[in-house]
Amino acid sequence: MMNPISIILIKVLFVFILGTAALIIMQKSLRSLFSIYAIQSLLMAFVSLVLFKETGSFVLLALAVLTVVTKVIIIPYMLNRVRKDSGIHHDAEFRYLTPVSAIIIGMALIFVIYSSFLRVFQLSQDNLFFLGSVIGVSLAMLGMLVIFSRKKIVTKAVGYLMMENGVLLFGVFIAELPFIIELFIIVDLVIFILLAAVLSMGIDSTEEDLTRKLNNLTKWFKQ
């Protein structure tokens, strides 16, 4: 019922999204990290567009526009501001997993999720929906993996954003999902980022040097 080209397109986009996820897991330079995130969000917007073309639901179009505006432009911009203010440009510390093992775990994860979903969705109506859900959940899990395997708060924030992307990816396949919900999710996301940024620098940023504070923060984190 769907245009085969669209299906192939979406599948290709999925592959790219996973690729960006892998890059986010490995990337040490914060600047590139944010760029990759922007690219990933752009790919998400493309998925929405493709689906919009298929279903004609304007919700998806709005979603694509919203994604581009917030995730491709605003959020990376804000993140870069934080990066410049704090003076931290690299996050080279990994916990629990090295980049290579993280990728391997990630692959295993995708397979596990795939096989679990396969059993549950036995009589699924929609092949693409199934694929979307697998990729979405995997992306969410990979985002979580980023959160716990990277040291810096900003990187963790990117991990969280990636999780959010995964969830949205899952969501776009159900066109009827009320638009207001999606909007709320994105608003929530923006608030979250603001909060995380403010928190990670402390409330009273005028009094003390930001750099020292951020360094302290990692130390404080031990307890």
């Binding site: 629990y96 679990s116 979580m144 716990f148």
Partner: peptide
Amino acid sequence: LDTFILYSFITVIILI
């Protein structure tokens, strides 16, 4: 925090 997130991560995988 990392470890806490790791706990959640493992739990989610197990649940899935």
